[in-house]
Design a protein around this nucleic acid. Structure first.
Lengths: 200, 200
DNA sequence: TAATCTATGTATAAGTA
DNA sequence: TTACTTATACATAGATT
C-alpha cells in the first residue's frame, strides 16, 4: 500500500520504523473507530510503543466514566492522565462481563448487580496496587524518613482495602443466601426481591 | 474501499452489517498484527460483537503464559477457551506495568518483583470473581440442593483467596522493611539483597 | 449462510518540502 | 521532526454463486 510492497517483518531502520509506526498506528485506530461505528460494536485497542508510551482507542465512553467513579483516587495523583489509561484498560476487561450481563434475562441481570460491584471494586483494588508500586519506585529517591512515613500509610491503605474485600465477601455470601431462599419460593428471582439482598 | 464510498455511521441493514463486521474485523486484526511485527510493539485488540462474542489479537504470547500460571484454575473449567480470552485481557493490563518496569534501572526492577507478583495475583483473583459470577448464572437452572453445594465450594474458595491475599500483604510488608533497611546501608538495593525479602 | 470476484476507495511507502 | 505529494498496494462494498 505504498510505492512498493513491504515484507511483514521488523523494520530495522530506526527512522522509518518510527515513521511507519506513526502512520500505521493512526490508520489502525481510525479503522477501529470505523468498525465500532459501522457495526455498532465495542472495541478496545491498546498499543504500547517500545518507548513505553501508550496509545489507545476504546468505544463505550459512558462505561469508562462508571469505572472512573470506582477509581476516583487517581484524580488526586499528579500524573492523572497516566492512570487514566489504566482505568480504560480495566474498563475493557469489565466490558465483556457487562456485555454478557445485558444478554441475560432481566431477572438474572438484577441478581448479578452486587457481584458486578464486587468485580469493579476488585478492579479498583488492582489499580490501587499498581499505583502503590509506582509510588514505591519514586520513593527510592527520597530520604529514609520520608520512606518510613509513606510505607506506613501504604500499609494502612492496604489493610483497609483487605478489610473492604472481606466486607464484600460478606455481601456476597448474603446474596447467595438470598438467592437460594428466593428460588426456594418460585425457582426464579423477582425484581422486588433484589432489594432484599442486603439485610436492613 | 469498495464499489462505492460508505458513510461512517451505523449500518442499519442487519445482514450487511454482519458481513461488514466479519470483513473489517479480520482486516483490523491483520493490520494490528502487521503493525506489531513491523514496528516491534505490543498490541492488544479486543472486539466484542453485539452477540457477546469476543474476538481479540494480542502480541506478546510469552507473557500470556506467565499470567496463565497464576490463573491455572481456568483449565479445570469446561469452557476453558472462553476464560482464556479474559486472561489475555488481564495480560494486556499487566503488560503496561511490565513494560514500564523494564525501563527502570536494574536495581529498581529487582526490588519490584514481589509487588509484581502481588499485582498478578490480584488480577487472577479478579478473574476468579468473574468466573464465579458466570457460574452463579448457570446455577439458576440447577436444583436448590446442587446450588447449596456449589455455593459452599465457592465461598470456601473465596476464603482461601482472601487468606492468600493476606499472606501477600505480609510479603509486601516484609519487602518494605527490607527495602528500608537496605537503603539504610547504601541508599541503593544490591541484587544479592533481593533474596532476603522473605524470611528464611 | 459462506466463498469468491472485481471495481473502486483507502492506506501508506517513498519522495519532497 | 512534521507535513505534504504521489504512485502503488491493499482493503473491501456490492455482486455473483
Amino acid at each position: 500500500m505504498g510505492r512498493r510492497k513491504v515484507e511483514i517483518k521488523r523494520i530495522e531502520d530506526k527512522n522509518s520504523r518510527q515513521v511507519t509506526f506513526s502512520k500505521r498506528r493512526s490508520g489502525l485506530i481510525k479503522k477501529a473507530r470505523e468498525l465500532s461505528v459501522l457495526c455498532d460494536v465495542e472495541i478496545a485497542l491498546v498499543v504500547f510503543s517500545s518507548r513505553g508510551r501508550l496509545y489507545e482507542f476504546s468505544s463505550g465512553d459512558s462505561l469508562v466514566k462508571l469505572l472512573g467513579r470506582y477509581s476516583g483516587h487517581y484524580e488526586q495523583e499528579p500524573e492523572a492522565s497516566k492512570y487514566y489509561n489504566k482505568a480504560v484498560l480495566s474498563f475493557a476487561e469489565v466490558l465483556h462481563i457487562v456485555q454478557s450481563q445485558l444478554e441475560e434475562s432481566t431477572i438474572e441481570q438484577l441478581s448479578l448487580r452486587d457481584l458486578e460491584k464486587l468485580e469493579i471494586q476488585l478492579a479498583a483494588t488492582l489499580s490501587g496496587t499498581r499505583a502503590r508500586k509506582s509510588q514505591l519506585v519514586r520513593e527510592t529517591i527520597l530520604t529514609r524518613q520520608e520512606k518510613e512515613k509513606l510505607l506506613k500509610a501504604e500499609n494502612e491503605g492496604l489493610e483497609r482495602e483487605i478489610a473492604e474485600m472481606e466486607k464484600n465477601e460478606d455481601c456476597r455470601r448474603e446474596m447467595a443466601i438470598a438467592l437460594m431462599s428466593n428460588t426456594e419460593n418460585s425457582g426464579h428471582l423477582r425484581q422486588s426481591q433484589t432489594l432484599m439482598l442486603l439485610p436492613p
